[in-house]
């Protein structure tokens, strides 16, 4: 299993004995999904600079492989609860760059009519909200419904590391463990919450917090979708079939600012973060495939941007 430092990690092939393990070759579909998210987010930052987007947005640059891994283990009956940094979660599930961009720009074809915007999406069994921690009890309620109505289905909720500061997270974990609910908590620990490093906001760690409730926990530092998926798959099966919660912590990196132009990290920190970018390492390991798909997705998103910008504004009125 590719988790925390331990004997299992020795199985991974290391690049010249240093640095993270090399990245295996992915299917075109997986890589396309990751690069769709990458280009979508990059274009958003550009659209902000150009003044087309207003309000706020939180890009998941650097974290794309997390939702691509997780989503591949989910089915249509599973509910997903996303958060403020949720574009990747949505795109990994629906590949609907048009609908999402239209939502952000308030244009026709928007997923939620432009009412929800970046942080408030609802489509089928995918829902995001912008209040940290709020979704955990809601997801627990949905998981309780699923346990009764659709055994084998689960509720998956994404959080950042900072979200673990909210009290309601613990109320929900307690209930989820007590009631044996099929809840998968995916924590994307990117080492920072807005401007506050994890070490300044979290005493102890996520592992210990899960352990306090007797909740199964796994930590991944790898960024290789193939290995992550293989390691996560049996754990997710246990959530489904033993109806019990699981906390998965992905140690990851936020390449971009918290929202836009608000990165408080030092140049040295930013260099380290960029060096850990899965895309750089993937491009080095599989240059031909990367360049091909990168160009494809870059073109695709550029077309989406042009096409959506040409659409009329959405129409909505309060009831």
């Amino acid at each position: 299993m590719i988790n925390n430092a331990g004997p299992s990690n020795s199985a991974a092939v290391l690049d010249e004995g240093v640095g993270p393990p090399s990245l295996s070759r992915l299917s075109d579909a997986d890589l396309s999904s990751m690069l769709l998210i990458r280009h979508f987010e990059k274009n958003l930052l550009k659209l902000f600079e150009q003044g087309f987007l207003h309000g706020t947005t939180h890009t998941c640059l650097g974290q794309e492989y997390v939702p691509v891994t997780v989503t591949s283990l989910l089915g249509d009956a599973d509910h997903v609860f996303s958060n403020h940094r949720g574009h990747g979660h949505y795109l990994a599930r629906y590949a609907d760059a048009e609908g999402l961009l239209a939502e952000l720009l308030g244009r026709a074809g928007a997923v939620c009519g432009g009412v929800g915007g970046s942080q408030h999406l609802l489509r089928e069994r995918f829902l995001s909200t912008g209040v940290q921690g709020q979704s955990l009890p809601v997801a627990a309620g949905v998981a309780w419904n699923l346990k009764r109505s659709t055994p084998g289905a689960l509720a998956c909720v994404y959080t950042g590391d900072g979200t673990w500061g909210e009290g309601v997270v613990y109320e929900a974990l307690n209930i989820t463990a007590l009631w044996e609910l099929p809840l998968l908590v995916v924590t994307e620990n990117n080492g920072i919450a807005q401007s506050t490093p994890t070490g300044q906001h979290m005493a102890g760690d996520v592992r210990g917090r899960a352990a306090a409730f007797g909740i199964a926990y796994e930590r991944f530092t790898d960024t290789d979708v193939t290995r992550l998926r293989a390691a996560l798959q049996p754990l997710v099966e246990q959530v489904r079939h033993m109806s019990r919660p699981l906390v998965v912590e992905f140690v990851t990196h936020r390449l971009g600012p918290h929202s836009k132009g608000d990165d408080s990290r030092s140049p040295a920190e930013l260099r380290a973060v960029r060096a850990a970018d899965w895309a750089l390492r993937y491009a080095a390991a599989h240059p031909e495939q990367f360049e091909r798909i990168d160009a494809e997705q870059s073109r695709r998103v550029e077309q989406v941007v042009a096409e959506v910008l040409a659409r009329p504004l959405t129409d909505w009125s309060p009831r």
């Binding site: 509910h79 829902l127 709020q134 955990l136 009890p137 809601v138 997801a139 627990a140 309620g141 949905v142 998981a143 309780w144 419904n145 699923l146 109505s149 509720a155 009290g167 309601v168 109320e171 929900a172 307690n174 209930i175 007590l178 009631w179």
Partner: peptide
């Protein structure tokens, strides 16, 4: 169900149930 003494979560769970059609 009896819940723990967790008003935030119990109302949140109720919201989740309603969201799922209960």
């Amino acid at each position: 169900r009896n819940t723990p003494i967790s008003e935030g979560a119990l109302v949140g769970v109720a919201g989740g149930l309603a969201l799922a059609g209960d």
